[in-house]
Amino acid sequence: MIARPTTEQVLLDCCRVLTDDVLPALGDPVAQVRVVMLEKVLRNAAVRAAGEIAWMREEIATIEDYARKVLDRTSGDPVRQALAVLTAGPRDSLLLDDVVESYCRAGDALSAALEAVLAAGCRDLQHDGEQLLEQRLHREDAVVGGWQSAGR
């Protein structure tokens, strides 16, 4: 396959074309707003494409460790079930669809673990879980680069 330009570079070049060539030529304000939105979507997709597999695999491992700690300290059937579903998933594959599937399963395990520690009043584990959520949000924020309401 052609590896360079990378997916990120291809998408960023599309963004440049939309901004520099297409947008100035459009007279319809509705179409202009759509192009602005499309440029933002492509720019975000470029950032994601550059790192998403590595980021998700890193988070999956951290979440699994956390959920096991929670399971040791709480009587959480939902956590046990979520971990079983996670470990049964396609964890060794690097195909994007497989990594996303594992990431979603890990997300469910994190949700179950957080609900268990809230119910049990385990403040240290709650703090650790909140740190994981914060890291997740920090990365999402880095991908999207902030919220702007285009066209308004």
Binding site: R34, K40, E130, E134, E140, D141, V144, W147
Partner: peptide
């Protein structure tokens, strides 16, 4: 439509706000 994918940004923004509020 492009609006849906564009609004991924809004979900991220709202999740961040909700988390800070709940925390």
């Amino acid at each position: 439509g492009v609006m849906a994918t564009y609004l991924i940004n809004a979900v991220t923004h709202l999740d961040g706000m909700f988390f800070r509020i709940a925390r």
